[in-house]
Design a protein around this nucleic acid. Sequence first.
DNA 1: GCGTCCAGGTCTACC
DNA 2: GGTAGACCTGGACGC
Length: 319
Amino acid sequence: MTRLGNKLKFDILPTPPFSFKLTVKKPTGWFLFNPFEVYKDGTLWTSTYLDGIFAGIKLTSSGTVDHPKVSALIFTNRSLSRSQEENVKRLLAKAIGAEHDLNEFYRIARKDAILKHVIGDLYGMHDTFSTTIFSDALLAILLQMAPLKRSNEMMESLIQNYGDTAEFDGKKIKAWPTPKRLAAVSPEELARRCKVGYRAKSIVKLANRLAKGDFPTAEQLEDMDADSAKELLLELPGIGDYSADIINPHGGFPIDVWSAEVFGKLFFGKEPKNNRKAVEKVKKEGLRRWGKWSWMAFFYVVQDLDNLSRKLGKSIRLA
DNA sequence: GCGTCCAGGTCTACC
DNA sequence: GGTAGACCTGGACGC
């Protein structure tokens, strides 16, 4: 438990349209930083590491979708230097996707037979940016070869057992563990305590690799071209094509057996006979169809499956 | 109650 | 270079 008493207050002015609620609390429950964060009445309490600094974060919307303004209150355990403050402000704005201009994507989407159905429901939903590679990589590994319910259980157990707790503003919010923390744990202990099974070996190897401190940060990967960033991610233990597409800040088209079924129906009008074999075909078609907008297309479709299914009719039941 | 199958992938050995 | 098989765990299913 870390008590965070030092406060830093500032405002973020995202590029409109920007829906605070849809961005920090996605319709399908995707979180901003971790599964233990709390969203209530237009305010989000969460915790993460910003520039290596453990932070409790309170975000409140004080604007509208077309004139957005987000008030941020950052809690840390000590006062920050001027440059640390600037880094924290910049990273948080980036994390909530404040810099992204959705208008180009919407122009493309309005002309697309599939995407035109989803942009209305999700108007102003920005993609968010992970502040640490490790948390995204853990998420990706825990999604592998498991039903979503079990993935969530493994995720929560890992954070409960090894994550630090931020105590601030009357809240206690657990954060993802750091590479250093998990590098000190044996795979056997991790498997036993968190029931992550064979994934424990990959997780500990990954923690050891990232604890060295010489792997590029999410921002540094973003500064590379997409293929180079993905190539580096594929070198990490337990990270394959699907997981690399989840972690890559450039986005990708992360097709697994579940999304192969969803996008298979959308692209070809029918459920693939074998979802695992269809992954490659569906991925190829998504990248061909949406190119550099593949990730945004994936993101919007997945967040709007119920509505999309209704709009496209009973012939394509997606959810 | 018990056995079998397989899930929102990755890695390795083998050809 | 491509591909079959193993891999934790636990819920669903058939019997």
